[in-house]
Nucleic acid binder design. Structure first.
Length: 106
DNA sequence: GAGTCATTCGTTG
DNA sequence: CAACGAATGACTC
């Protein structure tokens, strides 16, 4: 594992349940410009249950990569999971995203 | 060593 | 208002 993934995992851990993060925020927290890299590490999910990749969404509040990329049926699952966490999903966007999104991770 | 990728921003139609 | 392309850095094979 790389320090990069380690940092992401740590940041996700700092995101309380019922809240979501954006790739941009993570990338900024890691001081990187490649938002993709963040998603890449999450996609592999080096830390399966510890890194709730579904809690990470695009900067627009959309589901981002989990949408229509891989069949999309997992998307439904994630949507439900997020709703279960307190994050309501409208279509493929996060409700109150602006309120639950964390633009600034410690 | 090369290819791929879960994004984002900017510009143009 | 909407859509397309270009840029970037990391991870995997």
């Amino acid at each position: 594992m790389t320090d990069f993934s380690e940092q992401i995992y740590r940041l996700l851990m700092n995101v309380p349940k019922g809240r979501v993060t954006t790739y941009k925020a993570l990338a900024q927290a890691l001081n990187t410009k490649s938002y993709r890299a963040v998603g890449q590490a999450l996609r592999r999910n080096p830390y399966a249950p510890k890194v709730p990749c579904h809690r990470v969404v695009a900067s627009d509040g959309t589901l981002g990569g989990f949408n229509g990329k891989r069949g999309g049926r997992e998307l439904e699952k994630k949507k439900k999971l997020l709703a279960s966490e307190g994050v309501k999903i409208l279509g493929n966007r996060v409700d109150n995203f602006k309120k639950i999104v964390i633009n600034n991770i410690e």
